[in-house]
Amino acid sequence: MSLGPEASVTDEESALTADAAEVRGPAEKAIAGRSLKQIAWRRLKKDKVALGGACVVIFLILIAILAPLLTKWFGHPIDEFHNETLDPTFGTPKGAFGGISTEFLFGVEPDSGRDIFSRVLYGAQTSLTVAFLSALVSTILGVIFGLAAGFLGGWVDATISRVMDFLLAFPQLLFSIALVSVLPYEMLGLNARWSRVAVLVCVIGFFGWPYIGRIVRGQTLSLREREFVEAARSMGARSPRILMRELLPNLAAPILVYTTLIIPTNILTEAALSFLGVGIPPPNPSWGGMLSSAVPVYQIDPMFMIIPGTLIFITVLAFNLFGDGLRDALDPKAR
């Protein structure tokens, strides 16, 4: 999360689980005969705010997937210029509120007249892709290393823990900017847009894994000593089996929660990198990039800044609401 642009380096969840001894495994609560899944689902259903967040998230995912269609129906191609919508002297949109009209639902971009509606839709595509995939990378790395550290212990644990501490004590945003800016725009045979997406996914995902890793390590440490693991071991189960059959299922809940909570941070980071000019290259739209191009003109065309900014806000808020709700549902004591 610390990659989260200038956000607090530690959010409350990692603070609570920082000390392995204090971690309460969600499994503890699954004693009432009902599975954790059922309990969680019941709780989640009651949490209107979290459900609202979930609806917005689903809606955003849908519009991102349907962006090409929606653009065709309600907008214009993302790279089509519309000089006729601009004031010829200043290059600003004609009409109030950044040129919002029935023709251009969110107005037009200054200096080009491109359709902002279409561009934010495609921006959602980029943002969500980067956020999900980088969360996936963080989770995979975090689970692998966290499990290894917690289960194997000894020097493996010591090494991995040091690396995690080191990564957390790192000027990450600076480093991401530096790293992304020296890499070429096109690689691996991908076009500029998707190769940059790949780079962002790797960088953001890489800096995010220690958060998941620490949690998984802590949980593993406490689970390792539990009776059911002991039982499995005494019955002759081997390490891989214990890992896959006994530990992982019990880790699923916290992993799910923290993966959900890392997504909004990733959205903010992607937008920040694009804002600083090292994100998705033009003409491909991204929310951060749109905010960045709004900087010189925000005084004369505030809508151009407000629209992508608000979208980032809504998206991140929705994910946070949903993630919070999910955590409460799976582990009510954390609140």
């Binding site: 642009p5 905010l291 980032i312 919070d324």
Partner: peptide
């Protein structure tokens, strides 16, 4: 919650627009 969901490059521009301009 809204506060943690707002990127500073947006609130920064917005506050400049409101309080300065």
């Amino acid at each position: 919650l809204a506060g943690v969901s707002l990127p500073i490059y947006f609130t920064g521009l917005l506050s400049k627009q409101i309080f300065v301009n």
